[in-house]
Design a protein around this nucleic acid. Sequence first.
DNA 1: CGTGTTATTGACCAACATCAAACTTAGTGG
DNA 2: CCACTAAGTTTGATGTTGGTCAATAACACG
Lengths: 247, 247
Amino acid sequence: MKPDIETGYAALIRSLEVIGPLSERDRELVRSMPLRLQALQDDDDVVSEGDLPKESCLVIRGWLFRYKTLPNGRRAILSFHLPGDIPDLQSLHLTKMDHSVAALTPSVVGFVPHDALREVHQQSEQLLHLFWRRSLIDAAMFREWLASATQLTGEERMARLFCETFYRMRVIGLAEERGFQFPATQVELGDALGMSSVHVNRVLQKLRRDGLITSVGQQHGIADWARLQELAHYNPDYLHMNPALRE
Amino acid sequence: MKPDIETGYAALIRSLEVIGPLSERDRELVRSMPLRLQALQDDDDVVSEGDLPKESCLVIRGWLFRYKTLPNGRRAILSFHLPGDIPDLQSLHLTKMDHSVAALTPSVVGFVPHDALREVHQQSEQLLHLFWRRSLIDAAMFREWLASATQLTGEERMARLFCETFYRMRVIGLAEERGFQFPATQVELGDALGMSSVHVNRVLQKLRRDGLITSVGQQHGIADWARLQELAHYNPDYLHMNPALRE
DNA sequence: CGTGTTATTGACCAACATCAAACTTAGTGG
DNA sequence: CCACTAAGTTTGATGTTGGTCAATAACACG
């Protein structure tokens, strides 16, 4: 498990450096935080609505997603999470979870005690700034999803989801490393985009027919990045990545 | 204009105390921040997408809303804001605005320099905690709107919007003080809920016919709070208000 | 090879959009 | 105080997106 811990710190540091510079001391502080590792199977909850967590969860390997169960029984997927993300960072300041986080694929996460996070926030103004910034970028992504959900067609939303996911993976170096493969069933895509899985199926077929994406089983890829961005009118400004890293 | 400044501090302090306790020193610190007053007419932008603000805007009187213009020309309204709110608090850590904020009604706002905010964050851990907490509650509201937008019918979403707005007003004491009157045109409601103004009109008529709400011109009220909550399956936990203040 | 999960297809239907016109209301200026 | 205007609301007719239901096909795994 030791290598997973190293991987975890590296992923976290990398994803912080994508939004602002870290000093060597900042990196040391990050590595000083204990990580309690846990392996997850598909659909295992990392943390559930109503919980009062005392630690937050760093994605080390695999993919997680946030979701909320509506009173009518439906599930809304609110975001997807990659290595280096801390999807429930908010629990540091909002004691009670208002949604759940679960594994999209078999994954490894590391739990960081809230006290350790508070400690590094006290030790480094820059780390405080970057963690806060990250939580605000999460909010910006929710705004973008909300605007898309209310104003765009299913096809456009699907294209946007692919653009955003690819862009996020590329920024942290994962797209190049392993190739972009977005693992999601059609039901999961539907719950994320607010459409039925039947409609997801038809939208995916159209995008495939048009040569914009590829799908093999539950792995989806991008076939024509330029045209996909164009169809989605995609502009990643809302992700507030370090402009120096833009291509 | 002097009374507006007092009103501004009072509104800010009240809306912070709704989510956590302040010491007398904290309140002093809040009052130490300079406020540059500005009056606004309907639809005046307070801050626009692309701006790089050096101050954040405190709502003192009136209502503001956040919005985003989509590439297809449509407008998505992302949230409404009441006195005591700082809708662009995020600009403290995200330099470039990814959306705009404008006046829903004639309003008065007070601009707070980012430096003053940073100063009080350094002076008081509790104020830092509460401001961060507030920005996380904003994110929680976006998640709730996103889940509603993707999974609920127009009628349910309208009912939820009324419930949320009433609840927020009541918590800061505005509903009792002035009675709940939600000022919004049908076009604005449509842009917030992702439906056409024609459909908004029909949904409002149904809610009125069922005796759940009242509308006089652009002022909407609640006629039957219990049944409205029931229809919306409304649960305000996601607002993370101080449990001690719950009724 | 079964067995469970996911993907695909077709037929049908509901929610909601669009378009266009008429009606109300609240100013505004003479 | 009334006519005029602009903004917002209401209504009806019609069209489209995407949902639901149900059956079949394709995989994946023990």
